[in-house]
Simulated assay, not measured.
Amino acid sequence: MLNNIRSKQVILIIAILLLGGFLFTRDVKGLVKPKDEAGQIPTNGQATASSTPQITIEEVSTTAKNLVSSATAKEIIALENSYKSASEGDKITNAKTLAQKWDDVEQSVPSAMYLEVVANNEGTLSNWLDAGTRFLKAFDNTQDSLIQPAMLQKANNAFTKALAIDTSSNDAKTGLGITIVNGLGAPMSGIAMLLEVVKKDPKNLKANMNLGMFAIKSGQFDKAIIRFNDIISNIKATPDAYFYLATAYENLGKNTEAIDAYLNSKKLAANPTLSGFIDKKVAELKNKR
């Protein structure tokens, strides 16, 4: 009986995590359980060319234009024409402009692709970190089963190149660890990389959030509670930290604590969609007490 209840809770938590990822920063993608390690992309963290769909800027740009207003699409077409006809010296400047424009309208896939162009031509640590971060955002934001693995692989590649430039970069290690945990290698090796970052920088928000997320996805709810409480008390009390803390409490049947955490998330987020979801969740939990 207990196993059946816990199974239902895990199913529920996955749905909640997806909602949370949609409503908040989307920096913390639902992570892979350790038992899913078998059958993943090779453990060196690099996918083979045959395992990852090949995409072009033209393809993703065409798709993205259908998701923005006609006025914005026309503006982007003009910018793209300037990019294509620009001299080599001006091309990078135009690519940066296009990356920003696409990001302004929440189209992270083409935005990331243009940042990759910039990094390939100006291979600085900052440029590769920017590209990797945008690719992770694109990975989180898209539901396209072909685009998602391509975005994750490109993020992995960008953070790998960033780490090659500066082996001490916590941002590069964190990003690379996230891509590994999400499927580009053995999840525990990614966790080890995130733990290394936290050991060096205990208040690294992104690394700590992803470790907390992994604890939830792997059913280690006690560890998740410790992690998210520490984030809230010592790093930053964010709405998503409270939200995931609430889901961990809920999975352990600690409904009073879960309600408090959900309400704190609602208060900080001030998001109408989230507020409606939490109101229903709190009502359900109150009926169980």
Rank of each mutant, 00 (worst) to 15 (best):
K200A: 15
S169E: 13
V181T: 08
K200H: 11
N182Q: 12
S168Y: 12
I178W: 12
A192Q: 14
I191H: 00
S169K: 07
N170H: 10
T167G: 12
I191M: 03
I178F: 13
D166V: 04
K161H: 14
K173A: 04
D166K: 06
K203A: 12
E196N: 07
D201T: 15
K161Y: 12
T167S: 15
G190E: 05
V198T: 14
A172S: 08
E196D: 15
P202I: 06
G183Q: 01
E196V: 01
I180E: 02
G183D: 00
G183N: 00
D166Q: 08
A162T: 13
K203M: 09
A162H: 12
V197H: 03
V197Q: 03
T179F: 08
P202Y: 06
M188E: 08
V198R: 07
L194P: 12
A192K: 10
V198L: 10
G177M: 02
N182V: 03
G183F: 01
G185I: 02
S189G: 07
L184S: 04
A164F: 09
M188F: 04
I178R: 14
G183M: 00
D166C: 05
G177W: 00
D171W: 10
L176C: 07
L195M: 14
G183I: 01
G177A: 02
S169L: 05
L163G: 11
G190D: 06
M188R: 02
P202K: 05
A162K: 10
T179Y: 07
V197I: 06
K161D: 12
G185V: 01
T174S: 10
A186F: 08
K173F: 02
L184V: 03
M193I: 06
A164V: 10
A162N: 13
K173W: 03
V181N: 04
I180A: 01
D171Y: 13
I191N: 00
K199S: 15
K161G: 11
D166A: 06
N170S: 14
L176Y: 06
I165Q: 11
T179K: 03
A164L: 12
P187C: 03
T167Q: 13
L195D: 14
S169Y: 12
T179M: 05
I180N: 00
G177I: 00
A192E: 15
D171P: 14
V197F: 05
V181R: 03
K203W: 07
I178Y: 13
I178K: 13
V198E: 09
I191F: 02
I191C: 00
G177S: 04
S189M: 05
L194T: 10
A162C: 13
L163H: 13
P187W: 00
L194R: 06
S169F: 10
P187Q: 04
L194M: 10
G185A: 01
T179E: 06
T174Y: 05
I178N: 13
G183W: 00
I178V: 15
D166E: 12
M193G: 08
V198C: 11
E196P: 04
T167R: 11
N170F: 07
A162G: 13
I178G: 09
T179I: 03
L184R: 01
E196T: 04
I180H: 01
D171F: 11
